[in-house]
Design a protein around this nucleic acid. Structure first.
Length: 587
RNA sequence: GGUCACGUAGCUCAGUAGGAUAGAGCAACUGCCUUCUAAGCAGUUGGUCACAGGUUCGAAUCCUGUCGUGAUCACCA
């Protein structure tokens, strides 16, 4: 949108090639948002390192003059300070941009026809069906969902996909726990299904622990030996075998418990305002992929002659892809699921796996295999993010259930805090929830996915400063002004107002929206977008405080500020939708 | 031990493609609510960018090494 930078670039190219015969050189034009002394954009002349500083300055002056000549309309003047060529926009430039921004629809800003027909599948959640969603999942959800929203805003068709791990020993533990410890209590109240099943799991683990300790004392043996002797473990394995043999009784409990969990999950998704348009279940996909491997035996995959398992050779390591008993593994399933998706969604352009960085090896192997199998031309990408630590330790979702904070619990804590803060004002439950959700999402998005999050409940409970609530608050404040002037008819022609510095800074930054979003995708870093929104919000609040609108007598100034306010609303609305932070009309 | 991340203010984090005096929030301290919504605004204090070398006109940023933290290295998913 910043047409000036394009024009400056063209001028730079011409001068360098024609006057100085420097062909393979490109200046980088920097934006300056902070320092009012320096130009709105600047070029660092030192990048012409092959010339001495006198020559650099000479070139600087020539470029400066040329730019002034060509772009008189938009540029006030240029200065060379500390070997930087600073270029200053004039008032007309800002007014022109304001007019542009006022007309433009932000949600159509990024859409290009190139992307319109392209389908992208984003696989961003794979919960186990034996426990509620927790902080570890939250990072996954928030990043995946934001990514999906960005691609949608670019015009792609996006499939948001999750695959639920609904089979295996973990769920059998819940089934057994239900049979042994809960079934006879007819008056069980189930508020939220996933929490109930989670309790079943904890109960089992507790009982197992008791038994193991008992065995260790009684027989004076070590832990591993006790595991072998454990009756509970034996029983669980029997359940698992029954499940694999399609035992009707087991299957019916299994279905019952899973459905409870899915209902619970759905409630949590609703709170977070996310929707998946593809839900896969491992019980249905775990047999896929086996045939593909057998088809390519001796060609890509090889047989272990001594035990008849099948492996793939990755960096001289044998990676087993089919067990000796012929059953599938994680990687086998991954291949199968891909085959399934290719069939189901025709013309997929791209699949993005938003999965923790601990699985980067898995994906490297997976992608290499897919490459060799020549299954498809779809671009596959592992969007990896780092772990969430709690109390100094990584949250391990697979085995342990204690030492984690559930998403629902976190929301509850926050709701309480927010309710207290609003002691005197009327505020309904839904608004409290929306505030909590925004605080939570924002907290996870604002940190670069590459970095470990050391989760501290106090950070998120402190609702000051750089938080999701701040962004919402900014929106609400501006909205209240605009609402009060709802009937005012604006005339866009012949605005001739000299803008304030904060207004200029604001406009300069607003122009960057498109680039920032593109960069967010390019670098796989949601914190870029968040920081951008936050920085602009700070300027907006400064604007709110100093550039009064309702109280100003000069109608023309009031009008231009109203226009800027409307642009701000459009901007925030658009970007809040992308990071999926709820918009509060009024607190 | 191999591989891959990360180390910036007391704490949590930004830092454009290597480029001007390294920026925010929290915490601490000053001001501002009869004010378009104070969950806000304006300001003060706070830095050997882990350490050591190298590349470069120029390094928080690139390279090498050391130290520290974490992840991973299953016929688990």
């Amino acid at each position: 949108m910043n047409f000036i930078i394009n024009k400056i670039n063209k001028i730079l190219d011409k001068i360098l090639i024609k006057k100085f015969k420097i062909k393979k050189f490109k200046f980088f034009i920097y934006n300056n948002y902070l320092n009012n002394q320096y130009g709105d954009v600047y070029i660092n002349l030192s990048t012409l390192y092959f010339l001495n500083s006198k020559q650099q300055q000479e070139i600087g002056y020539i470029i400066g003059k040329k730019i002034i000549n060509k772009l008189k309309k938009y540029i006030k003047y240029y200065r060379i300070i500390n070997n930087n060529l600073n270029i200053y926009y004039n008032n007309y430039f800002y007014l022109k941009i304001i007019k542009l921004l006022f007309k433009i629809k932000f949600n159509k800003l990024l859409i290009s026809n190139k992307n319109r027909k392209k389908k992208i599948l984003i696989d961003y959640l794979s919960p186990n069906s034996n426990k509620p969603l927790h902080l570890g999942h939250l990072r996954n959800i928030v990043i995946g969902n934001t990514l999906a929203n960005i691609y949608k805003s670019l015009g792609y068709k996006v499939i948001e996909s999750q695959i639920i791990n609904d089979r295996g020993i973990h769920i059998c533990k819940c089934i057994l726990s239900y049979k042994l410890f809960f079934k006879n209590k007819k008056n069980i109240k189930i508020k939220k299904g996933d929490h109930f099943v989670g309790k079943l799991y904890i109960k089992f683990e507790k009982e197992l622990n008791k038994e193991i300790n008992y065995l260790i004392k009684k027989y004076n043996i070590n832990k591993n030996e006790a595991y072998v002797k454990s009756k509970l473990l034996k029983l669980v394995n029997i359940e698992l075998i029954k499940w694999e043999n399609n035992n009707i009784k087991i299957l019916s409990i299994w279905k019952k418990l899973n459905n409870l969990v899915y209902k619970g999950f759905k409630k949590t998704y609703n709170k977070l305002n996310i929707k998946f348009n593809e839900i896969l279940y491992e019980s249905k996909t775990y047999l896929l992929g086996k045939n593909k491997i057998l088809e390519n035996l001796n060609n890509i995959f090889f047989l272990n002659t001594y035990d008849k398992s099948i492996y793939y050779l990755y960096k001289n390591k044998k990676i087993i892809v089919l067990r000796k008993n012929g059953t599938s593994l994680y990687i086998t399933q991954e291949i199968g699921t891909l085959l399934y998706r290719i069939k189901k969604h025709k013309k997929l352009f791209n699949i993005i796996y938003v999965v923790g960085n601990e699985q980067s090896d898995h994906f490297n192997i997976f992608f290499e295999i897919i490459n060799k199998l020549k299954i498809c031309n779809i671009k596959l990408y592992h969007y990896s993010y780092n772990t969430v630590n709690y109390l100094g330790k990584k949250i391990k979702s697979r085995r342990k259930i204690n030492n984690i904070i559930l998403i629902d619990e976190l929301i509850k804590y926050l709701n309480k805090i927010i309710k207290k803060k609003f002691f005197n004002k009327k505020i309904n439950k839904k608004k409290i929830l929306n505030l909590s959700i925004s605080a939570i999402k924002y907290e996870f998005l604002k940190i670069n996915p590459k970095k470990i999050i050391n989760f501290n409940i106090n950070n998120i409970l402190n609702l000051k400063g750089n938080t999701g609530i701040y962004i919402q608050y900014t929106y609400v404040r501006i909205l209240s002004i605009v609402n009060k002037l709802n009937n005012y008819k604006l005339k866009l022609n012949n605005i001739k107002i000299i803008l304030e510095n904060n207004e200029k800074t604001l406009i300069k930054q607003l122009i960057d929206n498109k680039n920032i979003i593109k960069k967010t995708i390019k670098t796989n870093d949601t914190s870029i977008l968040i920081n951008y929104i936050y920085n602009i919000s700070k300027i907006i609040n400064n604007f709110y405080n100093f550039n009064k609108i309702l109280k100003i007598k000069n109608l023309k100034i009031m009008e231009i500020r109203l226009i800027i306010s409307k642009i701000i609303l459009k901007f925030l609305y658009f970007n809040m939708k992308i990071i999926n932070i709820p918009i509060l009309k009024k607190i």
